[in-house]
């Protein structure tokens, strides 16, 4: 199979260009664009450039490239679509929305991650359309707000309604969720010996501190507006902007890149369902079926791409990977005992 190797520079420039065009279109030639948020918009474009670059580079690694191709091949197959209709929506719910795999690790971490996750998702859904000028509100009469999305009128709602309250305080709610989650996470990072054994400041603690700083400065902006008659508003807005921009520009480099990588687990779910239904490989030694046949073939291809050659010419050109992990251990130990049977060491 020959591969097309897209250039990370080209793809990232293209994606950033598309987003810039959408900002232009969605804000009706910048008519609805909020100049006060221009810094955020520019930083987002740079972040998208960086994230796409890293994403394309990541996809070019042999194992990632293979799963990426296979995943889409399986996704766009009509036969698979009929057989595994519910699989993708279910995996989406299970892996991304509810994150049951984290619950399996611990309820504490589940609560911690879900609050941070939903806080960030909620705030992103509000913030980015606002920054790009895609959401626009117009006052109609005395107490009615009209919401425009992409310049198209969507619906009207009364100013004093619960919906208006939730919409205008959506970011505060998101910030509270994130603060709760980050406190749980920081507590764990200073208590749990398992995480303390391996954590690093730049990778594990910095993203938490950044999220905390964003949420706190964001909440203080609301406080300044509601309770302090706007004192410190300008200063707080500046600090908030600096922290937010720093964080989104950090996404391609650190821990937060898992946001981009993680959905791949849905592809893995589909891969195993499709490959598993097609038949399994039997271990060349014990005969036990141990992994989908397609998986073993793909693994061999990945190893070949990485210039590793486990072919065993004396065993009908079988691969060492045709043996199940248990037999690999047993056979290696047997090789050891054959070499050492001459005497005790």
């Amino acid at each position: 199979m020959r591969r097309l190797e897209p250039s990370p520079t080209l793809v990232s420039l293209l994606v950033t260009g598309v987003l810039a065009a959408l900002i232009f279109l969605g804000s009706r030639n910048l008519k609805n664009f909020d100049a006060a948020l221009a810094g955020y918009a520019v930083a987002t474009l740079f972040a998208v450039l960086g994230i796409t670059y890293r994403f394309v580079q990541w996809l070019s690694r042999p194992p990632t490239a293979l799963y990426w191709r296979r995943g889409w091949q399986m996704f766009f197959s009509w036969r698979n679509f009929r057989r595994f209709l519910g699989l993708i929506p279910w995996a989406f719910l299970d892996h991304l929305a509810v994150q049951n795999f984290i619950r399996e690790r611990s309820y504490y971490r589940w609560a911690m991650h879900l609050t941070i996750f939903w806080g960030v998702v909620l705030s992103s859904l509000i913030v980015f359309p606002l920054v790009f000028g895609w959401f626009n509100f117009r006052l109609i009469g005395e107490d009615q707000y009209h919401l425009f999305v992409f310049g198209l009128p969507l619906f009207t709602f009364p100013l004093g309604s619960l919906f208006a309250f939730l919409l205008f305080h959506g970011l505060d709610i998101a910030a509270l969720l994130v603060v709760a989650g980050v406190i749980l996470a920081l507590r764990r990072r200073y208590r749990d010996r398992e995480v303390m054994a391996g954590q690093e400041f730049g990778f594990d603690l910095l993203p938490l501190l950044l999220l905390l700083a964003i949420s706190i400065t964001g909440l203080l902006l609301t406080a300044s507006q509601l309770f302090w008659e706007g004192s410190y508003y300008w200063f707080l807005a500046l600090v908030h902007q600096v922290v937010v921009i720093g964080t989104i520009l950090y996404i391609p480099f650190g821990k937060l890149f898992h946001i981009i990588q993680r959905p791949a687990s849905i592809g893995i779910e589909l891969y195993y369902a499709v490959a598993g239904a097609a038949g399994h490989s039997a271990c060349a030694n014990c005969g036990r079926e141990f992994a989908p046949e397609l998986f073993v073939q793909d693994l061999k291809r990945t190893l070949s791409d990485l210039e590793q050659d486990y072919v065993m010419p004396a065993e009908d050109n079988r691969w060492w990977q045709d043996y199940c992990p248990e037999c690999k251990r047993m056979l290696r130990a047997t090789a050891y005992f054959m070499e050492t049977q001459r005497g005790f060491l």
Binding site: R288, M312, E326, M330, L331, A335, M338
Partner: peptide, 21 residues
Amino acid sequence: VFHIQQALKFAGGAEISAVPG
């Protein structure tokens, strides 16, 4: 060097009681 292929000839279908991974 430990040669695994030698072991294969010796083991040929030996009983496995290893722990699954």
